[in-house]
C-alpha cells in the first residue's frame, strides 16, 4: 500500500515590487493578445475593403464556371433581417451568381420572400428547381438569378416523406403483385422520391453559412454530398469583399471525389 505525503511549505509573502512586476506582465500579455486580435480584424477589414474597391487584381476576374449552384444557410435569428438578405442577394446578382438557394431551419426566409416572388416565377427555372423564382434586381445589376427558398421541412422531414412514398409504393406493389419481392431501393429511387414529394433539387457546389455556429443547421442532407462548406460569420457584419474572397477560394478548390487524382 502506498502512502502519499504532501509537504506544505509556507511561502514568504512576495514583495510589492514582485507583485507589481507580475501584474504588469499579466497586463502586457492581455494587451498583446488584444492587439493581435485587433490587428487580425483590421487586416481582414482592409482586405475586404480592397477587394470591394477592386484594388486586389486577383479577385477582379472571378471564374464562376464551376459554381453552378450556391447555397446560403442563415441562422434563424439572423434570417429576420430582411434588409441584409436583400443586400446579400443584390451582391450575389452583381457578382454574377446564377442559382442561389437560401435556407433557414424555421422557414423565415421562405415566408418572408417567396410569396412576394411568386409573380416572378419562371417556368423553366421551376422545372429545374422545386421552388424557383427568377428575379431581376434592376437596382443591383443586370444579371438574372434563380432563387430557391428552403426550410427545415425540406431536410430530414423531406427524406422521411420520401421514405414514406418508397415504402407505400413497395407495399402496394407487393399487395397487388404476384409474390413478395425484396425491397431493392437505390440512391436513384430515393432521389426520384424526394423529387416527387417536392424536396428534390440540385446539389449545391458551395454552401456559405451565416451565423454564430459553424454548422449547416439541417440543410437537406441528401444534397450535401460533395458541397464545399465555408463559414462566413454573423450576417449583420457581412462584407462584399468576404463573399468575393469565398467565391475566389472556391474557384481554386480541387475535388477528386475519392479517386486517385492529382492536380498537375
Amino acid at each position: 500500500m502506498k502512502s502519499v505525503f504532501s509537504l506544505c511549505v509556507q511561502m514568504s509573502r512576495p514583495s510589492i515590487i514582485l507583485k507589481f512586476i507580475l501584474g504588469l506582465l499579466w497586463g502586457i500579455i492581455h494587451l498583446a493578445i488584444s492587439l493581435f486580435n485587433l490587428w487580425s480584424l483590421l487586416i481582414y477589414n482592409i482586405e475586404c475593403y480592397l477587394i470591394s474597391s477592386g484594388l486586389l487584381w486577383k479577385y477582379r476576374d472571378l471564374h464562376l464556371d464551376r459554381l453552378k449552384y450556391l447555397a446560403i444557410v442563415v441562422a434563424s435569428k439572423e434570417a429576420k433581417n430582411n434588409m441584409k438578405i436583400r443586400q446579400l442577394l443584390c451582391w450575389l446578382s452583381t457578382i454574377g451568381v446564377k442559382y442561389v438557394c437560401l435556407y433557414d431551419i424555421e422557414g423565415i426566409l421562405k415566408k418572408s420572400f417567396e410569396p412576394a416572388m411568386n409573380g416572378l416565377r419562371d417556368g423553366k427555372a421551376g422545372e429545374y428547381l422545386d421552388i424557383g423564382a427568377s428575379v431581376n434586381y434592376s437596382h443591383c445589376g443586370h444579371k438574372e438569378m434563380v432563387i430557391e427558398w428552403l426550410s427545415g421541412s425540406d431536410g430530414k422531414e423531406g427524406i422521411a416523406k420520401a421514405a414514406n412514398l418508397l415504402c407505400s409504393t413497395y407495399f402496394s406493389e407487393n399487395t397487388h403483385g404476384n409474390g413478395k419481392r425484396e425491397p431493392t431501393f437505390t440512391e436513384a429511387d430515393m432521389a426520384s422520391a424526394l423529387k416527387a414529394v417536392g424536396c428534390g433539387g440540385p446539389e449545391p457546389d458551395l454552401l456559405l453559412m451565416y451565423g454564430p455556429a459553424r454548422c449547416h443547421l439541417g440543410f437537406p442532407a441528401w444534397r450535401l454530398r460533395y458541397t464545399e462548406i465555408m463559414h462566413m460569420g454573423p450576417l449583420k457584419s457581412m462584407k462584399y469583399g468576404a463573399i468575393v474572397k469565398a467565391l475566389y477560394n472556391f474557384s481554386k478548390k480541387y475535388q477528386n471525389y475519392g479517386k486517385l487524382g492529382f492536380q498537375l
Binding site: 430530414k156 443547421l217 439541417g218 442532407a221 464545399e228 462548406i229
Partner: peptide
C-alpha cells in the same frame, strides 16, 4: 478539405464543423 464527402450526412445537421 471543407466538405463532408458523403460522411454522416443525416447525423451532422447540428454538428460543429472543424476544418
Amino acid at each position: 478539405e471543407q466538405r463532408l464527402s458523403n460522411f454522416l450526412l443525416w447525423q451532422s445537421a447540428y454538428s460543429e464543423l472543424y476544418f
